[in-house]
Design a protein around this nucleic acid. Structure first.
Lengths: 346, 346
DNA sequence: TGTTAGCACTCGATCATGGTGAGTGCTAAA
DNA sequence: TTTAGCACTCACCATGATCGAGTGCTAACA
């Protein structure tokens, strides 16, 4: 399909998308023929526009308004016409300076990244911390709460701390627990959670009589502790910035937008689906997508450390987002965060 | 001032406030004289209304609309006219059943409370977890990240887990750290953070040569770990429910509302200021208040455990909130949470 | 003296009207 | 193939009329 567009059509589409990005208003043929020196009269431009509309790349809100790009139009623009230049040395340095990661724990880093992304882009920042399951075991501690209830604290290589309450044998003493954690810490060190789980399951299934009572306890405790998926952590920053965008100026649009940002589950699903990809990804909230993005676009990139923990960060904004500005920021930030996470573990 | 109102004025004010609460529209004299059987004609009601307006308890949005209560009017209503009945046995049981606290860690409990409060009230739920400084020391653990950077994990009696990254002597070995944490855990057990701090400072100031190197390390490490205030944790649930309220139907009102809910710092300040009080407190976002509550009201109550950790929970909604329904819910929930926190520690 | 009926008045909300201008589609000429 | 011209569409805005809920005031009434 991409090939079926003449160069002229492409130029005009590009001009329309870019005008629309900066003005948020339907773009008319006259404006295009004036501002860009294609040496074409409005009438000619109109012909091209009619073609583009037929192809589903443009639409007009009503008979005598200009045209605005459809989701498909944006998609084409992004796939074919958008050229993203890399940040230059200076811009990179500026971006680096925006972040202050010194002595921050994982949660703080995630939050800081969201804040900065949202501040720089003037849209809403999204950061999903690396999943529990993708982290590498570092240490486990048990703390007794009340009769049989244990607080398990799990620390990953990257300093991510998760905790969870589990039921246990009420008769376990403090020194039992210490022995158990010592055993587990030496046994599981350096394994990914995935590996830890298979290892534990295997050992549990082997002839149980071979183990002493305490070791059995250790295994079943840690099994319980690591069993369920800990819920994902999603940081959303700067939601109210979106309220200034003209596409969310009516109460209905605002409501829809806020609800989209509040339904973290949907957002997490969306971010999940991008975790296998490399580099920057762009989702366009067209009708086609099964997830209601409220006519927003989502620009994401994954970050990861060398041990394979993967998180996702990005920016959500109106479809009419300034991609050529946002994409490099998201891209470079992801690289930055990856590097920071690696430095965590020396 | 309260005394200067005749019984009739009080009755009429009450009727107006309650009508307004349920309709969200200016209340006219005819409606009052009809629906409530005061045996008064609209004209008489109007006379009283004029008085109430002069006193600043009512106002009219324009010449020929009905009256709506001012912030002061609501204040008077709440102070003098509102009678909050306790929940009956049945309602209490229902409320209890709404919450599922089994095997939940502190964070989850706070979040669950916010969710349920918002669901029941159809307004926005706020929960502020007990402050770090008000908690009681249970356990501390150190985990080495990279050259000289330590992850400190602190657990309170109630199972609240906080963590923090600090700088330390890079030469500390794992066993040093273990000794240090053992020492601290036995030494500080059962003290409040406040007490821990004073104790540490005192010991550090005493003749340092009396201590061996390791102990000195221990003291300075834990000092660093507990020094700064960890930021407060505020859970906001159900913000989008507010968008359905008629007082937030215009874009400007919505924007203001969302910004209020997003500026957690202000909310925390407000909740802080209620921590010394007993029972349910109601803030009315009048112009007088220095904090912009966007014409909202805030109904809060503190919860606490027997060791003195204090948190605050509540509901934020339009000034026109259904107080007689919300107040008992907030009240009983606070009692419930207090009890749950105590059960945590046996 | 307190209460009420009557009445003129106010003012937002709603609707119909008409003008304006940006923009379109189509056609015919260059 | 491009473009000038033209009729047409339609959102937007200002205007003005009507409506009705509600008020304040005054005079009559119990």
């Amino acid at each position: 399909m991409a090939d079926s567009l003449t160069e002229r059509s492409q130029n005009i589409l590009e001009a329309i998308v870019e005008d629309y990005i900066s003005s948020a208003e339907p773009v008319g043929s006259r404006a295009i023929s004036r501002k860009h020196n294609f040496n074409l009269s409005p009438a000619s431009v109109r012909n091209v526009m009619a073609d583009l509309e037929e192809m589903g790349l443009l639409c007009s809100p009503h008979t005598s308004a200009g045209r605005i790009p459809t989701g498909k139009g944006f998609q084409y623009y992004i796939d074919t016409l958008l050229d993203v230049r890399d940040l230059n040395r200076n811009e990179k340095q500026n971006l680096r300076n925006s972040y202050r990661f010194q002595n921050m724990k994982m949660e703080d880093i995630m939050q800081e990244v969201g804040r900065v992304l949202s501040g720089l882009s003037q849209y809403t920042g999204l950061v999903m911390a690396p999943k529990f399951i993708s982290t590498v075991f570092r240490q486990i501690e048990f703390i007794r709460l009340s009769h049989g209830r244990l607080l398990v604290i799990y620390v990953s290589e990257t300093g991510l701390v998760q905790n969870k309450v589990i039921e246990s044998d009420p008769n376990l003493t403090a020194s039992d627990l210490e022995q158990i954690s010592n055993y587990l810490n030496s046994e599981l060190n350096g394994l990914s959670i995935q590996e830890v789980r298979t290892k534990l399951n295997k050992e549990l299934q082997e002839d149980q009589t071979r183990y002493d009572q305490l070791k059995k306890q250790a295994l079943s405790l840690s099994c319980a502790a690591l069993q369920d998926e800990v819920e994902d952590q999603l940081y959303v920053s700067g939601a109210s910035l979106m309220l200034g965008q003209p596409e969310f100026s009516t109460p209905d649009q605002m409501k829809r937008m806020i609800q989209t940002l509040e339904s973290k589950k949907h957002l997490i699903d969306l971010l999940d689906s991008s975790q296998s990809a490399q580099g920057v990804q762009i989702f366009i909230g067209s009708e086609s997508s099964h997830i209601d993005l409220a006519d927003c676009s989502l620009v994401t990139s994954n970050f990861s450390n060398q041990k394979g923990a993967i998180g996702t960060l990005g920016v959500i904004g109106p479809m009419r987002m300034n991609y050529s500005q946002v994409v490099p920021i998201v891209d470079f930030t992801a690289q930055l965060v990856s590097r920071v996470l690696d430095r965590e573990l020396e």
